[in-house]
């Protein structure tokens, strides 16, 4: 069986800067994959390429055997790739419920005529999906709260809830544990594990190595836009190339 997500020698140049260069990799169905690398390695750019936020300079991305490289971002989301953002992008002026309903709207489509004719089934479906996602993330009690009033930790869950309302097959998390304390990080890891248990494939960027090592089945390492290692957490953490990328070579350190 082909992997759910397959990246084939993806390249992205910004002028002379090679943000992502010849990156190949994949995520299998139900797999939890971590993507690590020093700052500025091109991880977020790679995420933007996968979700078609930024067009590829060359290469291709396949999702479930369909070439998504030239699709618009919203089409990719509807195919089943949902993401969260590194710098939280909740909509502060909308309620928690309305925030999450955006994901459900993305999945079920939005038509002005449904609103005009008051199609009841449609509204119920969106409502149900939204509540499901809220319950999954434990936000149901704050549903009527404005998103701006949530704590930082809760906002992280709000972003995940919004992504879950899309009913994705692949969930992409950009630094989910950043800014969380140890207890919160542990809770988040447990939560992600539960999602994965329900069959969701997960690709995440994270700087917290404990989080990545305990959670992910496989880790890809990026440095200067290239993939430098790919393997189980143990393999990767003992790889001299990876250590060098993180710590710098002897001469540089001296």
């Amino acid at each position: 069986m082909t992997p759910l997500l397959e990246i084939k020698s993806a390249c992205r140049y910004f002028g002379g800067l090679h943000a992502v260069e010849d990156f190949s990799g994949h995520v299998k169905r139900g797999e939890r994959v971590g993507l690590i690398g020093p700052n500025g390695a091109g991880k977020t750019t790679l995420f933007n390429l996968i979700t078609c936020f930024t067009p590829l300079s060359s290469g291709a991305v396949f999702f479930d055997d369909t070439d998504i490289s030239s699709l618009k971002a919203y089409r990719v989301a509807r195919l089943g790739i949902a993401r969260t953002f590194q710098n939280l992008r909740v909509m502060p002026n909308l309620s928690v419920f309305d925030n999450v309903s955006i994901g459900a709207l993305g999945a079920l489509g939005h038509s002005p005529f449904a609103a005009l004719t008051k199609r009841a089934n449609y509204a119920n479906d969106i409502g149900r999906r939204t509540w499901d996602a809220l319950e999954q993330t434990g936000l149901q009690d704050q549903a009527s709260e404005l998103a701006a009033n949530l704590s930082y930790g809760k906002r992280k869950y709000l972003e995940i809830a919004r992504a879950l309302a899309l009913s994705p097959r692949l969930l992409i998390l950009d630094e989910p544990a950043a800014g969380l304390n140890d207890t919160e990080t542990a809770q988040l890891a447990e939560f992600v594990l539960r999602l994965s248990g329900e069959g969701l494939s997960i690709l995440l960027v994270e700087h917290d190595m404990n989080f990545v090592m305990s959670l992910c089945e496989r880790v890809m390492v990026m440095a200067s836009g290239r993939k430098i290692a790919d393997g189980s957490p143990q393999e990767v953490s003992n790889d001299p190339v990876v250590l060098e990328a993180y710590l710098g070579s002897e001469e540089e350190a001296a």
Partner: peptide
């Protein structure tokens, strides 16, 4: 809900697009 979609465009259009709008 359609209005929610419009408001999502107002609040953050890139984020709305990544949610399938």
């Amino acid at each position: 809900y359609y209005g929610n979609a419009l408001r999502a465009v107002r609040e953050d259009d890139q984020c709305a697009a990544s949610m399938g709008l």
